[in-house]
């Protein structure tokens, strides 16, 4: 049992893991911000486009959401990191992970926002337009605020999933928590660093998972 909690190994592993926490949080927050912004932008475009010449845009956005729902995030990350350089696109591990996680979350967020927007009663659009609000103002002041309420629980859950998926970045040598733990583990041939990393992840994400569960029951959409 001692080998799992070897104090010397834990002490040696801690500085690296501690710096890894910063990288994990930095990658998580930037990808979540980018993904949510991308999803909101795409859903807004999809809601506001009108008229025949622009209709294919809506289809393209829906196709993007489909493709990135079907694509495993790790496959996307590996393609971005290992294949893109052949096209002259050299991304750092961090950038590749940021782009991959942002694109995947963007697709889910678009779908969630779109579902929220379409679930707002058509009468709300009609009422707003009948008072002379432009489509943009009707969307911004009337439809979106109601849609956002419905999106909070699922969006929170997707954001948490994105935070957890930052562990994938260890595969492309980003020195986040898992990567730091794995490198010390390789040097010391001890499982203790991995357990320490696991403890860090639980400390980071267990409260968030509980909050996500609470939001689901609180808002109770189905």
């Amino acid at each position: 049992m001692r080998i799992f909690f070897d104090p010397e190994v834990l002490a040696a592993a801690w500085p690296g893991i501690r710096s890894g926490i910063g990288v994990t949080l930095g990658l998580a927050l930037t990808s979540i911000a980018a993904g949510v912004a991308l999803g909101l932008l795409l859903a807004t475009v999809r809601a506001l486009i009108r008229g025949a010449p622009l209709r294919p845009v809506g289809g393209l956005i829906a196709a993007y959401a489909d493709v990135f729902r079907a694509m495993p995030p790790l496959v996307l990350l590996v393609v971005l990191y290992f294949a893109a350089p052949f096209a002259g696109i050299e991304l750092s591990g961090f950038m590749a992970a940021f782009v991959a996680l942002g694109l995947v979350l963007g697709a889910s967020a678009e779908e969630i926002f779109w579902a929220g927007i379409t679930s707002v009663n058509r009468g709300q659009w009609e009422a707003a337009l009948s008072t002379g609000l432009s489509r943009g103002e009707a969307f911004r002041r009337v439809v979106l605020p109601q849609a956002v309420r419905l999106t909070i629980p699922p969006l929170t859950n997707r954001a948490i999933a994105t935070g957890k998926n930052t562990a994938l970045a260890s595969v492309v040598a980003v020195p986040e928590v898992l990567n730091q733990a794995a490198s010390v583990q390789a040097q010391t041939a001890s499982p203790a660093p991995l357990l320490l990393a696991a403890g860090v992840y639980v400390a980071l994400f267990l409260p968030l998972v509980r909050i996500g569960r609470w939001l689901e029951t609180r808002f109770h959409i189905r």
Binding site: P191, L204, L206, L208, R213
Partner: peptide, 26 residues
């Protein structure tokens, strides 16, 4: 049980995988 479920969910799946595949041999 719900706490146990959430505890498992707090692990990134990759961390759980590495922990089990590299931890069990010990």
């Amino acid at each position: 049980l719900s706490w146990g479920v959430d505890l498992i969910r707090a692990f990134p799946p990759l961390v759980l995988l590495v922990l089990i595949v590299h931890g069990l041999p010990f």
